[in-house]
Measured scan of single mutants.
Amino acid sequence: TTEYTFTDDEEARRAIEELKKRGLTFRYEKHGTTWRVRVD
């Protein structure tokens, strides 16, 4: 499991789109302004 942290909404959304394109399994949660994206 790899975890990424983003504080920029645009950056987080781009990363999420990219992961979807690659067909990877991931989860994300947003805490205030911080996004945590975990890739299995």
Rank of each mutant, 00 (worst) to 15 (best):
L19H: 01
T25D: 09
K21E: 07
R38F: 15
T1F: 15
E11F: 05
E29R: 06
D8E: 05
V37K: 00
R14M: 10
R13I: 12
T1R: 09
R14G: 05
R22F: 06
E29V: 11
Y28M: 08
E29P: 00
A12E: 01
R14L: 10
E11L: 08
I16Y: 02
K21N: 07
Y28S: 05
V39R: 00
Y28R: 01
R22I: 07
R14V: 07
R14T: 08
A15W: 15
E11G: 05
T34P: 00
T1Y: 15
T25S: 13
G23I: 01
L24M: 09
E10V: 10
R14E: 08
R27T: 15
T1Q: 09
G23H: 05
D40G: 11
K30E: 02
L24D: 03
E18A: 10
R38Q: 14
T1D: 08
T5P: 02
G32W: 02
E3H: 08
E18Q: 10
V37I: 14
T34E: 13
T7G: 06
T1P: 12
H31N: 13
K30L: 06
A12N: 01
E17W: 10
I16Q: 00
I16A: 01
T25N: 13
E17S: 09
L19Y: 06
T7K: 06
E3W: 15
R22E: 06
L19F: 14
H31A: 07
Y4D: 01
D40R: 08
T2A: 09
L24S: 05
D9V: 10
T2N: 06
K30A: 03
E29M: 09
K20W: 07
F6K: 00
A12I: 04
E11H: 07
R22P: 00
T2W: 14
I16G: 02
T2R: 12
F6E: 01
E10N: 11
R27D: 09
R38M: 15
K21L: 08
I16S: 01
L24G: 02
K20D: 04
K30P: 01
H31R: 09
D9N: 06
F6I: 03
V39E: 01
R27V: 14
R36M: 11
A15Y: 15
R14P: 01
T25L: 11
L24A: 10
K20Q: 10
Y4W: 13
D8W: 03
E29S: 10
E17A: 12
I16D: 00
A12T: 02
E10L: 09
D8P: 02
E18K: 07
E10Q: 09
T5F: 14
E11T: 13
T33M: 09
E11I: 07
T34S: 06
T34I: 14
G23P: 00
F6Y: 11
L24P: 01
T7H: 11
H31G: 03
R13T: 08
K20N: 05
V37C: 04
T25H: 14
Y28V: 15
R36Y: 15
T7W: 08
Y4G: 01
T5Q: 07
V37Y: 00
R36W: 15
V39D: 00
Y28E: 03
Y4H: 04
T2Y: 14
V37Q: 00
E10R: 09
E18F: 10
T7Q: 08
T1G: 11
D40C: 15
I16C: 07
Y28K: 03
